[in-house]
Nucleic acid binder design. Structure first.
Lengths: 239, 239
DNA sequence: CAGTGGTCTAGACCACCTT
DNA sequence: AGGTGGTCTAGACCACTGC
């Protein structure tokens, strides 16, 4: 196997090829890739060129490299990764892992808005999952999660939902969430969620609308989280 | 001049040295740095090592490189850079540059909270600047900006405040804002700002609290922006 | 044309891990 | 000891810019 010597820099071609293999599932999470020299020989380029491609993938959180051991598919299920996208903090800056209770889970056809956010067309059955998250024993966040069945077949048949769904996505469905797009709104709490959160219908709440992006760039999950006002802060460092 | 051959990788030492020179103001914005070979000779390392250091600085938005021309100090005053930190969007996704009116500007001693956010100690005079931003002719955002006089001497003597203060910071005070830390709260609109925004005192608003970070890592400005509810969305892509 | 950054190679040596 | 990634070098060639 060798890369074409035209159009694109070799390291970029190598990056594209290796990324598409990773997306295809050629290597499983926590499994080592071939060594730099092995990949270089296979692609017909020098070790330095492969290294440049691999380092770019490390920068994008797709790979993990450990000196003396090897290059591994990144684990997006570890605590450090899960915290990466959990931006809600207590006003004093502390970060808390919430407890979670599933309120309901149902299949239905996607709404127009959901189809547009998830790039779905035609008949698109989805699962709507409603969860309540507790902090310090108090109901704090109500989450509505939309999962397309085309991406997560029979996900509503899962008996045990982990606290972080991303773990389930990676282990059971081969979906690696590498980035998220958040939109924050101040809205009035919908009346159907008022009792669950112990607030009045129409109370002002922070609503975090999130599209979760798979390693291949597709939005594969869409969620809305209603957060009890003044208990939380959404905190971000933009570089 | 040459780097010590111990402790740290050479490219990292080169990065530290070049960054500190940049922070010191050895090279002004839009001015070219010496060429890779010139820097390599000066530091006593190879061109490839200098390149690695320079590329890291490019990744951090400190430098700009143009093939065939040279390596330049990044301009943080360009539209593309200013938009980078302006996360407020219309609900339909459009981004707008607001008009701005200064409501007041006054000197006073920093409060305890301001000292803590800006890492100030002892006597710390600051300027409190209150601005109202309009979108489509309507009052939309009320901004309270705290500027330490130790960082921005006599900034309240400036006759003309640009729409984006960061331009002024870089051109007049040698301060380059390279990152920001935002905290989003849902709060009640303080009564003293109610008239300006045309809302009732206590109305629920989105409050964006921002610390702006200089190239040397210091928080040099602290601001709070009260945003008229339901006209805006705060939008972020986390990678 | 000369000067700049961008790519690619080949080889040397080091640091770390496993056996 | 042998394999892995990490650093560093020197040199070649390419692509773009400006004179």
């Amino acid at each position: 196997m060798s890369l074409s010597k035209s159009f694109q820099p070799l390291y970029k071609q190598a990056y594209e090829l290796l990324t598409s293999r990773l997306v295809n599932g050629d290597w499983k999470p926590s499994e080592p890739l071939p060594s730099e020299y092995a990949l270089a020989a296979e692609l017909g380029v020098s070790q330095g060129t492969v290294r440049k491609a691999l380092n770019q993938m490390v920068a994008e959180n797709l790979l993990d490299r450990r000196q003396g051991k090897g290059t591994y598919v990144a684990e997006h299920t570890q605590e450090s990764s899960l915290f990466r996208f959990f931006r809600l903090r207590e006003p004093n800056g502390e970060s808390l892992i919430p407890e979670t209770k599933v309120l309901s889970s149902s299949r239905r056809e996607a709404t127009a808005a959901e189809k547009s956010h998830l790039n779905l067309e035609g008949s698109s059955p989805v699962v709507e999952l409603i969860r309540l998250r507790y902090l310090k024993g108090e109901a704090a966040i109500l989450e509505k999660v939309i999962q397309p069945l085309s991406v997560f077949p029979d996900i509503d048949k899962e008996t045990e939902l982990p606290n972080s769904l991303y773990t389930l996505y990676q282990e059971k469905f081969g979906i690696s969430i590498v980035s998220v797009r958040d939109e924050l709104h101040v809205t009035q709490l919908p009346s159907e969620y008022a009792d669950d959160l112990g607030l009045a219908a129409g109370a002002p709440v922070l609503m975090v609308e999130r599209a979760s992006i798979n390693i291949d760039g597709r939005a594969v999950e869409w969620s809305q989280a209603y957060c009890s006002t003044e208990k939380f802060v959404y905190s971000v460092h933009l570089k």
